[in-house]
Amino acid sequence: MSANWVMCLSFLLGLGVDIFSDTQGMNALASTILAASRKWVFQLYFPREDDLGNPVPSMRSLGLVVYAKYMLTAVLLYCIAVFFIQAFTLRHFEITLLRIISSSVLTFLMLLGFDSIATTRHSEKRL
């Protein structure tokens, strides 16, 4: 999917979360930031794939370790964005930091769990 559509989709998803939780614009902004930095995070962890354009990150195409590193970075980025926008001050910095770390760990574990359920064994290709 092209980057623009990914950004619009993530903005709408963030907006949906905001509507239900009375936090206006917070999750929308954080997910837009995440979508925009997605390409940059790809380049950080993946081998240089100039001919593939926009690769789909999943455990199948990347292997567990690289995927886990990518997901941890993305989750950390999102949590930092959300909690800093929510606090909007550096006053109770330790509480904000604690929230970021605990949320990231929990989200990372849950996403890892969800993705390993969705992975089917027969798609292991041999090159």
Partner: peptide, 23 residues
């Protein structure tokens, strides 16, 4: 998209909060 989110975030006047965007 960032400008739109920031507009939503910084609208602090309670009378402007659209009722569609809250719970």
């Amino acid at each position: 998209l960032t400008v739109v989110s920031c507009l939503l975030l910084f609208q602090s006047n309670p009378y402007q909060h659209s009722i569609y965007l809250t719970s």
